[in-house]
Write a protein that binds this DNA or RNA. Structure first.
Lengths: 244, 244
DNA sequence: CAGTGGTCTAGACCACTTC
DNA sequence: AAGTGGTCTAGACCACTGC
């Protein structure tokens, strides 16, 4: 019998460095918004050349985990920066200008996860989760009705009051109150008919076509922590996507 | 009066090299699918180090204009490669497996551009354009109804017969018959009600919600050359998007 | 002015492909 | 074995920021 070694295990130095930096991020050694050590310091710490650290950081900043600022340093990405406020929002008014959304939270309840949510968030069916309902408005008119599911453990203590006391994007809220930074998200989009609840919140008639966007968001380590189902009124705005 | 010089004109060497490579691509000096000169050769040609050429190619391959293959060379991106066949298609069956679409071309006519199309393709209103109608099916059931607009000059001679004689993605067709390679695209997505034509082609009832995707595709030099409006039946499939 | 990221070089060596 | 892309280093210098 022949033993076949998996020879595809080769991993360049800079990827190992990348993994080390990643685990520091995941462990919370460097908080969102603050600077990590300089390239020279890291090179010394890991006993490699600056170029190798640089390449590791290159990839991490391409993945939006780190942000370089020439002359200042390299910073841990955060949703609290102005230009990152609505990083995952792809909805744009047909007129073209930029969106400023206003949230109105309707409810926030503790429920048991059904199978669908549990699977999406990699929890056990029946685990305790939090369900938030909200409506987003753009210059006075409601354009999105959203349901948001969160693990009750990670977001322990989240309440309607705390949500109403917050101004700004939810992801900045998660970051500052629950030490949870969102790294990436996956969306599945469909066209559906507005049901009664959706229609009333968006001031449409029942059966109107609305854009359904189902999103799962992930923190460090590919851990899914939020699932949300949005219903957009796309009569005066659209979802924008660039393909490369 | 004071003259303000734009001092933000600094551009590193590798970007200048990048621009040179780009113009060779745009000029058709290197055709899609074939290898460009090796990094060493290019370094010699431009009198810079290999590292500088490398960084230029890094960016071009991140933008999907070039494709590196270790040990073989660097190749001009092409839509004729298997793994690029449906590079811009984001529609996925809910079941998860991969799509194999079959095209049925309904018509192909020469018309005059209205203002909307002319603007999108940066032509003059009234310019001659080609309008293609088609239906795409997935395992027998129609899931997309598309209208496609092209500049009649660039795509001179395109006919329903030539379309029917082609098997494979349209973008590979454009490449091989009209020397036009698509580099990127922008999509605007809405939920709309199916009109009579759309409903009959997709075997839905009139008024059913369908996903409207309006796409503008660009060749080298940011030149828009195709506009298409797709209507997807999203009852059993969805549009997928990843946010980073 | 010192410190940070950003560029550029030259040379050595590694991994993969092809002949 | 030769040729390609991929990695790594060490050192010099440039551009930007803030004290």
């Amino acid at each position: 019998m022949t033993i076949v070694l998996d020879s595809a295990t080769f991993s360049p130095l800079y990827r190992q460095i990348k993994r080390l930096i990643l685990s520091s991020l995941q462990a919370g050694e460097w908080q969102p918004g603050v600077a990590i050590p300089s390239e020279m310091e890291l090179a010394a710490r890991y006993s490699v050349s600056q170029g190798t650290v640089r390449k590791a950081i290159d990839e991490l900043s391409a993945e939006n985990l780190l942000v370089r600022k020439q002359g200042k340093g390299t910073f841990v990405a955060t949703h609290q920066e102005d230009d990152w406020q609505y990083r995952f929002l792809r909805l744009v008014p047909d007129s073209g200008q930029k969106v400023v959304l206003k949230s109105h939270f309707l409810s926030c309840n503790r429920i048991k996860a059904n199978l669908e949510i549990a699977t999406a968030l990699k929890l056990k069916g029946g685990d305790s989760i939090i369900l938030i309902d909200r409506v987003q408005s753009f210059s006075g008119t409601p354009i999105a009705y959203e349901q948001i599911w969160l693990s009750a453990i990670r977001f322990k203590g989240l309440s309607l009051d705390s949500l109403n006391a917050w101004f700004g994007p939810l992801y900045a809220f998660y970051e500052s109150k629950f030490a949870t930074h969102m790294v990436r998200a996956e969306e599945k989009i469909k066209a559906v008919s507005a049901d009664a609840a959706c229609a009333s919140h968006l001031r449409l008639s029942i059966g109107s076509p609305v854009l359904s966007v189902e999103r799962i968001s992930y923190t460090y380590g590919n851990k899914p922590v939020e699932m949300r189902r949005s219903r957009y009124d796309t009569t005066e705005q659209h979802y924008e996507n660039n393909l490369n």
